[in-house]
């Protein structure tokens, strides 16, 4: 499933950070911005150029929530599970999304259309319960309105209405 990638695309990034202390995390952030995730071949190149062992890179990548080792869906859904969303029913919204997309949080749909994520707060508690699809906010959700919002991005998905 991992497509072949052109690792030379990250050379300008690596050049910019050569000999900079503490560069690993910003480098990984910029590499991920290129591919949408962190392909293994790109990480090898990062390690060789910055002289950081793969074990340390793997340790850092798996520590931070922001980094992905697998390709992401076209749309990332961030379903907020912060405190305000929790007390206003955010869990029901998440469960409805899981049923609709047939993936668990952290996973991507088989057609690479959606990645479902939970976040601990998007800082728009007045919209609770809230989710973001890409850069768009959807607030004051119910399980049903959340599913309807997702279907807008996926016109082919059939509605299972009786």
């Amino acid at each position: 499933m991992t497509p072949s990638i052109d690792v030379s695309r990250i050379d300008p990034i690596l050049q910019k950070y050569t000999n900079q202390a503490g560069a690993l995390i910003p480098v990984l952030q910029e590499v991920q911005a290129v591919y949408g995730y962190l392909p293994e071949d790109a990480l090898k190149r990062v390690g060789q150029t910055l002289h950081v062992p793969m074990s340390r890179i793997y340790g850092v990548v798996t520590f931070y929530a922001q980094f992905y080792l697998t390709p992401r869906g076209q749309h990332t859904i961030k379903c907020c599970q912060g405190t305000a969303c929790h007390v206003r029913g955010g869990k029901g919204v998440l469960e409805a999304l899981e049923r609709e997309l047939k993936v668990a949080p952290g996973q991507t749909t088989d057609d690479l259309k959606f990645s479902l994520e939970t976040v601990a707060c998007v800082g728009t508690c007045f919209l609770a319960p809230v989710m973001m699809i890409g850069e768009d906010y959807y607030g004051k959700l119910t399980p049903n309105t959340a599913v309807k919002a997702v279907r807008k991005y996926s016109p082919k998905a059939k509605s299972e209405e009786a």
Binding site: Q81, G82, T83, A84, H86, A120, C121, G123, T124, C125
Partner: peptide, 10 residues
């Protein structure tokens, strides 16, 4: 700022 439900610093 990481506390869920906090957006002062932001």
């Amino acid at each position: 700022e990481g506390d869920p439900g906090a957006f002062m610093d932001r």
